[in-house]
Simulated assay, not measured.
Amino acid sequence: MKQRSIKLIECPRDAMQGLHDFIATDVKAAYINLLLQVGFDTIDFGSFVSPKAIPQLRDTREVLSKLDLTTTRSKLLAIVANLRGVEEAVVHNEITYLGFPFSISETFQQRNTNSSIAQSMDTVKQMLELCDKNGKTAVVYLSMGFGNPYGDEWNIEIVEKWAAELVANGVKILSLSDTTGVSSPEKIRKILPSLVRKFENTEIGLHLHSTPNTRFEKIEAAYESGCRRFDSALKGFGGCPMATDDLTGNLATEELITYLESRNEALNLNMDKWWEAVEYSQKVFPLY
């Protein structure tokens, strides 16, 4: 298997979506514009979902119109949860990636997208067709990939079964997602190498939620298991508001950067702009 370069996906969308107080559109846009100058592979910037489901992101279109993409190498990713969201997102030329949360927990798929796993697989198939027609790339998140708190059956075979079906239908990027922070270094080391080996022509990433005291060991386990695509958020902000009341935050980007640099990975980031974004984040997340 050839060595792949590191891809860092910064996720302000995930960081902001669970906050109760609405963040002004101009503040969101200014924050994302700073992140766009850092040099991440992708910015997960917004969401084409019902405003009733995620009211914080009801201004995604307005935010998009205020982003300056003229001097960035970063690509934009937007989350969708149903076919209507796909249709709304694909018309925007600025967006490269559409992300869809495909849960292997029936309970959470209903809770998150108001559809069954079978219905969601149909949505993925239609999304892939629309992405092909509109020059977009689908990123499918294998949600609840490390277990779930709902009592739904989970094991590695179930993870690999759904991964295989998604890949067979044309998914080129899979992101194994720990929606509620139940992953462990042991689980990562057990699951990830098998996926990387079995689907060598598919980009396998990780979207981990974690408490601060377990982040580093999870990053290390992921890197040593062959992961080269990491989702993270500045200071570890965020989590999934559809999963639990107490948010388990994202991987902290600064900790990810520190670890990867310790492994001599060339990230080619503009750290001056990064620290500007860190400082500006106090306006976005004033209560943190």
Rank of each mutant, 00 (worst) to 15 (best):
H92Q: 05
C11W: 03
I23W: 07
S105A: 00
I173L: 06
A164K: 10
F146L: 04
S281T: 05
R189K: 14
C240F: 02
L64Y: 08
L67Q: 02
N155Q: 04
L192V: 15
K7S: 14
A243G: 03
I79K: 09
D272N: 11
W162C: 00
L267T: 03
F230M: 01
D272F: 10
G85C: 03
A89W: 06
D152P: 02
L206E: 08
V86R: 05
L206N: 12
R111V: 06
V90A: 10
V27G: 08
I43V: 15
I104E: 01
K190M: 14
K187L: 15
E94D: 10
S74R: 00
F216G: 08
A266D: 14
W275K: 13
A163V: 00
V124T: 07
A15T: 03
I156T: 11
A138M: 03
N82A: 08
K28C: 05
I219M: 14
T107N: 09
G145Y: 04
E276I: 04
V90D: 06
P149Q: 08
L69H: 09
Q126K: 15
C240S: 13
K133N: 12
L35Y: 04
G239R: 04
L98T: 06
V38I: 12
P212N: 06
K190Y: 13
S143H: 00
S175R: 13
V91T: 12
K52Q: 14
A30L: 06
L76A: 09
V124P: 02
T123I: 15
V139N: 01
K172H: 02
K161V: 00
L260H: 09
F108H: 15
G99T: 02
T71P: 01
T42P: 05
S143D: 05
E261P: 02
M242I: 05
S120M: 01
T42V: 15
I188E: 07
T253W: 05
A89H: 07
R263F: 05
M144S: 13
M242N: 12
K161E: 10
V124I: 12
F40H: 08
Y280M: 01
W162L: 00
A81H: 11
T248R: 11
L287C: 09
